[in-house]
Structures are given as structure tokens and as C-alpha cells.
Amino acid sequence: MKYTAVYVLWLLVLFLVPLSIVVLFSFLEPRVHGGVLWSFSLRSYSYLPQYLRLIWRSAWIAGVSTILTLVLALPVAFYISKSGHKNFLLLLVVVPFWTNSLIRIYAWRVILGNNGVINQFLNRFGLEPVQFLYNPFAVILVIVYTYLPFAILPLFSSMEKVDESILEAALDLGANKREVFVKVLLPNVKAGLLSAFVFVFIPALGSYAIPDLVGGLNSKMIGNEIARQLLIVKNWPVASAMSNLLIVVSLVGILLIMRREKMK
């Protein structure tokens, strides 16, 4: 009971209070050099339609990244759940987190840059350099790389719970391997898939550093615009309104998970 109180206080002070400030500020008027005027206004939300293109771009980049991440994570999680070295393999999945994510993003620049390792290799064979980076696809690649562990872990935990005999039964009853995977395994790990989807899609949608570092002229995402509105334009209400948009998307995701849990 004592511990619950600490936990509640933690959530209240470090989560609920800042969140309420963001929600509150989005309904106020901006001041010229940052800060807010204490008068109610919906003006910041009226700005949002201007950003349809940006929102759409963020959504498709995050969506494509999430699907790719799930497609890659499924076989990995399956393999680990059936392996005899589970703990070791799980450790390997988590190891990249020991390095700061910014450094890992920079590493991609070293590998794929115009003057990077691969292009220097191509150059040695007299081939023209390829511009891998500074476009939305580079952003997708690095998002997939960064968030892959977030998809593997929940998928692993739900696959571990799947009784192996169900899969064997399906095989015995004449299903081929593909059918076992699609018709038996996938429906049984739906909950894991959903959590993996939410764990990847929500942070991907709010990406900031990845599009900034490996993106180019047309790969800015909503996170970059929030930072720009807050810092450069100094329009705190608009920045808050855009953050709220992201919060609403996350909430919908979390509600989806919770509803599923209840149905079970």
C-alpha cells in the first residue's frame, strides 16, 4: 500500500501535471516571445489543418515503419521463443540499448552517408556513389532499426505462452507451415501483435532526432514541427495543440489494447 502511494505521486507529479499544462496551454493565446496569455482561444487548433501534409507524412512514415518492424520481429520472436538459449538471445536484443540512440543514428550516417563506408567501397570499384540518406526511406530504415526490440519483446512474451502442441496438432491435421503460421500462430499472438504495434507506432509517430539527422528536405515529421513551434516560432499554444494531437493518437492506441484485454 505504501508503495502504491509513491507510485501514484510519481505519476501525478511527473506525468499528469506536465500533461495538464500542455493541454491547458493549447487553449490559450500565444505571447510574442513565448509564454501564454491567459485568455481562452481555439486559435491554435485552427492552425492544425495547415499541417495536413505533415501529419499525413508522419502517419505514413510511422505506419510503413511499424509494419516493416512487425514483419521483421515476428520470425525473430518466434525463433527466440523456440530456442534453447532464450536468455542469451533476449540479451542480444537488448544490447543495442546500452549505446545512446543518438550515437546509433550517427552510426547510420557513417555507414550510408554520401562519403560513408558503403559509398567508399563502391567508389573503389569505380561505381557512382548512391545517395542512401536524406530521404523518407532513410528515416524509415532507422526507425525500424531503432524500434525493432520494442516489437520483438512483446511478441516473444506472447509466443512463449502459445502451447506447442497446438502447432503440432495443426501440422498433424494437414496444415502446411505457412497455414500454421497464419491461421494458428498469428491469431494466438494477437495481443502481442497489438502491443508491439502500439509500442512501435506511437514513438515512431513522434520521431524527432531520426528525421532531423538522416532525413532530408521532405522528411520532416510532426515532432520536428512541434520543436520548431516551441523554440523558434515561440508559439507555445500551437506546439501544445500539436502535441495533443499526438497524445490523442496514443490514447486511442492504449484504449484499443485495454479493450482487448477486457474482452479476454
Binding site: H33, G34, G35, L230, L231, I232, K234
Partner: peptide, 11 residues
Amino acid sequence: ASNEEMYAKIK
């Protein structure tokens, strides 16, 4: 890294 970052913090 930028005036804006500094200003946001001080403000």
C-alpha cells in the same frame, strides 16, 4: 545548441 533552446529554458 541554439539561442532558442537557451531562451526556452531560461524563460
